[in-house]
């Protein structure tokens, strides 16, 4: 096999090399400006790349699905026996649940209120993982054209997944809650002490800046405090597994086990920011009649 030879004249080589050097110098002298320009220009390129990316992700999912089903068949006999035992137990529980359903109807009214209080969200699928080894990120199949922007929060029904850091037209990159470069405002649900949740290099999370007088203990749940944009208050982040209190330190910190396993997450919700309410709307001041 012979590689096709595209002969480039010496002058063209020099011009291309000169342009590349100018580009590199530009990057070094005006990093922020050029980065945002190239991020915008890169949106169509990202759209083009998202097609093979989604195709490969689709094929990968199908293979994984088929493989999973095949492996599941190996233990179907044993599983069948176990399911029969569970069915007897469930029949007994069914009667109790009928009683509980009446109570559920009453509570659903409250839940409806909660649902309305949450900001709008966009459902997205995970189609890839970070390309490098320096950040813990996932790639979503929704992007700027779906209204997704940087700094928006990403959750699952179980809890916080991370925060959007980059978008193209049809994809978005989510920095996971377990990445050490991520910071989310958190709140210990029982004690109401606030802090900042950061990821750790071990793939866990850590709540920092807990007041020394706080009586937080292992088993306490940490939720979003809603103070910084991206997440409403009360979304679960993790459970405290250890408290670290150092001598002469101004604060204590706590190691968390995240509620969501970022390595297994497949479908997420992106919380789209709502316009902030005005002071009048927040305090419930009636609008003047036209």
């Amino acid at each position: 096999m012979r590689m096709v030879n595209l002969r480039v004249s010496y002058n063209a080589r020099r011009i291309a090399l000169g342009l590349a050097v100018i580009l590199v110098l530009g990057f070094l002298l005006l990093p922020g400006q050029l980065q945002s320009v190239f991020q915008s220009i890169g949106s169509p390129l990202g759209w083009v790349i998202s097609w093979p990316l989604q195709a490969v992700a689709g094929i990968h999912d199908r293979i994984a699905d088929t493989w999973g089903r095949y492996v599941a068949l190996q233990g179907v006999e044993e599983e069948n026996q176990q399911l029969k035992r569970e069915l007897d137990l469930i029949k007994e529980q069914n009667g109790q649940l009928r009683e509980a359903s009446a109570a559920t109807e009453r509570l659903s009214a409250l839940l409806e209120f909660k649902r309305q209080a949450l900001p709008t969200s966009v459902a997205a699928q995970v189609i890839g993982r970070d390309i490098g080894n320096w950040y813990k990120t996932i790639i979503l199949n929704k992007g700027a054209s779906d209204g997704i922007q940087s700094d928006q929060g990403v959750i699952t029904p179980a809890g916080v997944v991370g925060r959007i850091v980059k978008t193209t037209a049809s994809t978005a990159v989510v920095l996971l809650v377990t990445d050490p470069n991520n910071a989310i405002a958190g709140l210990i649900q029982r004690t109401r002490d606030e802090g900042i949740v950061e990821g750790t290099t071990q793939g866990q999370a850590r709540l920092k800046y807990i007041p020394l007088l706080s009586n937080a203990r292992p088993g306490d749940h940490v939720v979003t405090s809603g103070l910084v944009g991206g997440f409403p208050r009360g979304i679960p982040i993790g459970t405290i597994i250890r408290i670290d209190k150092e001598e002469e330190a101004l604060f204590q910190s706590a190691e968390l086990s995240p509620e969501v396993d970022p390595n297994r997450v497949e479908d997420v919700l992106v919380i789209r920011s709502l316009p902030l309410p005005t002071e009048g709307e927040r305090l419930g001041v009636p609008k003047p009649k036209p």
Partner: peptide, 20 residues
């Protein structure tokens, strides 16, 4: 440069370090 730019669009890594 082109590959670094394209890869940075799908990563947390910034464009400058990746491309350069």
């Amino acid at each position: 440069l082109a590959l670094g730019w394209a890869m940075s669009l799908f990563s947390g890594q910034d464009l400058i370090s990746s491309a350069i």
